[in-house]
Amino acid sequence: MTPDMTVIITGILVAVSCGLIGLFLILRQNAMLGDAISHSILPGLVLAFLITGSRNVLPMFIGAGVVGVLTAFITETISKTERVYKDAALGIVFTTLFAIGVILVSIFTGEIDLDQECVLYGEITYVHWDRLIMFGLDIGPRAPVILAAILIIDILFIFLFFKQLKITSFDPQFADSLMISSKKWHYILMIFVSMTVVASFESVGAILVIAMLILPGATSFLLTTKLLPMLLLSALFGTLSALGGYYCASLLDTSISSSIAVFGGIIFFIIFLIKSVVRTN
């Protein structure tokens, strides 16, 4: 596999896995939670680096999962005091955690494999040379291998619990009346969002993760009301964003992650405008 191929495949894997899981955030009218978690997992990631002294996959995922659920939980707790609305509570939690993360990064630069800019827009260009070594074996480029595993896990999760996810997303009250706890599924979903985010985060940075959590899902949401086609379209738009973004970035010689994000936005606005024109006619 050529280095360029690795970058493209990494981009597609990020876009599809984030696009699938992010759709549920949009359906729950909780899209900014994706933004929040993409920021707040940073201290978890840094601490996992610092404690284990390596970039082991397992501590990284545990750290991310914990911080992700914690973000949702603290937000819930603060808004329960009834003096802070939920949106502000979410904002306070993620800006605080992200600030802590950035400070940790700036203090321990050199000891860990991250810097302030990389946190935002990643180093996807170099993914090919960052290898995943397990049991002394070079399994392949680290980012796409991990991302492929996460994508499979995400798809399995959505496939196995399709009914629960669907009902708690579209009609939480009805779900509760059927004894399917919408709250429990909210937290379970947070675990999967966090895992997906952390897998993408190191290689592509926060910006692309946020963009792919929201844009493909929002675009497909404009086109259909059925969950399964929505998921498939989301994956399709994610893939198109990755391909188009990569192509534009190599034309302009600029940040690949950000180009993919922007291309996802272009697809959204094209569909959005077509829909508006069709509706007004």
């Binding site: 827009y121 910006i207 946020i210 992650s257 950000s258």
Partner: peptide
């Protein structure tokens, strides 16, 4: 995300 992406 789109505007920030354009910025970067």
């Amino acid at each position: 995300s789109v505007f920030f992406g354009i910025g970067i």
